[in-house]
Design a protein around this nucleic acid. Structure first.
Lengths: 352, 352
DNA sequence: GGTTAAATTGGAAACGTTTCCACTTTTGCG
DNA sequence: CGCAAAAGTGGAAACGTTTCCAATTTAACC
């Protein structure tokens, strides 16, 4: 047993730059230069060092390096729920781009808990991460981000409107939910719908706010009685039970069309419709916000608002990289478009 | 402009342990002891140091600390596709548990590319991560894990059978796919089905292999003609187009029941069935492998094999933590059960 | 009160890099 | 060939911690 432990210990003892220096018969400084810049290094030294490093299987300790260089090569990603497909794809795309740039991504989810958010920010700061991608659980917890930015690390916000001082908005990647919602609503109004329900998480965050704005704008510009614009706020998609949708669809003046967010809310709405015997699209038109597997495969297939999650992640990574490099400013915000994917779930309302 | 830069620089210059020492009027060593162990520290020093640290807003540089302590407080998580809901939930649960233990999680996805896997392992090693959770894209790329383990960091495998030397299997969290598939198949056979198709990613990985084994075992133990057991391998769930399912269901001896993995394959199968006018469950029984939103919300609701992704993540984190603490061995493997959730998508085959 | 043991403390040596500085060596050029 | 500039090199000082060690103070005991 202790035998095994010592064996492990032996294996663990890694080669250091000093070992390489000794092996190559040069100084530590030269090894460092040879391995990194390659600048001001003679061919002979470069060759010998490379050979020695290869022979010894030397791999630099990036942890130690970062102590000296004051840069860790890691960026944080703070998100409320990685398991949410909407976030997962963003995280994945961002990670891919960042890793191509040689950066590691640290991920932390906060379950929308402000205290956790602050704890994560503290952890990120203490670990001296180079930068950070954040999608806060609400727009108001800006103290945490301010604090983080005070540490000097660039922060890129994902689809949120975090309050900022003066005229220096946070770098951010935004999705044009307003225009998306407007398009969807206009489409339904055009089909003849007059009572439309918008089911989305509340106004605590930008996406909800923007959708509501676009939703109402469509009613206003079509000169339709705005009383038909039913905004149903959910605190979060988790809380949205089927029951809420049932209640909505049982009203005597029930909506003839529904615009429902994501997977869970949409699922609740669909199930409620099924339970009430409402057929889609004959009795109820449905538009999904966010193009998930569920929307695409459901029968009938659900018309959906789609935006590219990959683009969001990629753009965020790009923005962050640009800040990290510190090269000329460039744009600090990106606004990504939302498309309406027409499928089979919308039809004119049945006269009654 | 340069004004602003200097301002930022000022903010960035962090308090070090030396500043605290000066402020408290004690030595650096005492500060360290006071802030960490608290052992062998007088009440006066403890008080003064705490006050000084508080006043200066001191936060230790974990990066520097880890150079000395040879432990980084970070663990890696290597997975082929974080955007896959099956992985996302696991990652989330593991992250939650690890963060509770004060560890940060670095995530990397490899898109099933062995070269990327090796690159990630190299990066993890160079950054001296304390441990690692891996779900390789195939069971064969074990060179990489072996190399990683040689670095001394514990590795926990997620639902894979990675070849191991001698009698020391890798610590792993496994899901009992074999028993799950057997249960599902037995259920279908019990309903009267004799031609059943199993749609799952290929045998390159444990889950597929185990499912196939369970599937065949059910046929064997029921003494049913094994020719009815149609195993349809997909290289990966991504490649599974609707077309493959169409082809399968158009055969003259088409299966009367399907067991389909996950979201994408299941979606393809469902869409194919719809396009062919096959109604579920009258013409075709369907069982989903993995209980996704799609299965739960589809109409009819799809009977599904379910296992707890959260449990997988949690168990993996627990296993890893136990290794990290190095306290008594404990079990090195966990096998998690799979349940069959009965819904509406299965019925006896129509006589014909 | 004296002696020994225990507790506390300061100073310095790590940890593995990069980078600065002074010093050689090479190169370029008239 | 001589001389200045450029290029290459070794040694040592950081980076911010923890931890070892020796020295001091305090506590404990007879």
């Amino acid at each position: 047993m202790s035998n095994m432990l010592t064996r492990v210990a032996e294996i663990v003892s890694r080669m250091t730059i000093r070992d390489v220096a000794r092996e190559a018969g040069v100084s530590v400084g030269s090894v460092s230069r040879a391995l990194n810049g390659g600048k001001n290094v003679s061919a002979r030294v470069a060759r010998d060092v490379a050979a020695a490093a290869e022979k010894l299987g030397y791999q630099p300790d990036l942890q130690a390096r970062s102590l000296r260089t004051r840069t860790t090569g890691m960026v944080g990603c703070l998100v409320s729920d990685v398991a949410n497909p909407l976030y997962a794809s963003i995280v994945q795309a961002a990670e891919a781009r960042l890793r191509d740039a040689g950066l590691l991504m640290v991920v932390a989810n906060t379950a929308n808990d402000p205290a956790r958010e602050r704890a994560v920010v503290a952890a990120f700061r203490s670990r001296r991460l180079d930068g950070m991608l954040v999608a806060p659980g609400s727009d108001e917890n800006d103290r945490a981000w301010r604090e983080l930015a005070a540490g000097g690390a660039p922060v890129v916000i994902l689809d949120r409107d975090v309050p900022h001082e003066e005229d220096t908005p946070w770098p951010a990647v935004l999705v044009d939910h307003r225009e998306g919602a407007r398009t969807a609503t206009r489409y339904l109004i055009g089909l003849g719908h007059r009572r439309i329900a918008l089911l989305t998480p509340g106004a605590r965050m930008r996406p909800g706010r923007e959708r509501i704005a676009g939703f109402k704008a469509a009613f206003a510009e079509a000169d339709v009685d705005p009383a038909g614009a039913l905004v149903c706020l959910q605190e979060s998609s988790m809380d949205f039970a089927q029951g809420d949708a049932l209640e909505l669809l049982r009203r005597d003046q029930r909506p003839t069309a529904i615009i429902a967010l994501g997977t869970r809310i949409l699922a609740g709405a669909l199930r409620a419709a099924r339970d009430l015997g409402l057929s889609i699209p004959a009795d109820l038109s449905v538009i999904a916000v966010g193009d998930t597997d569920l929307a695409a495969v459901h029968s009938p297939a659900i018309t959906a608002l789609r935006w590219s999650l990959e683009d969001v992640g990629r753009a965020a990574a790009e923005l962050l990289l640009q800040r990290l490099r510190g090269t000329g400013e460039g744009p600090s915000r990106a606004l990504l478009p939302v498309d309406l994917v027409l499928r089979e779930s919308c039809a004119p309302p049945t006269a009654k």
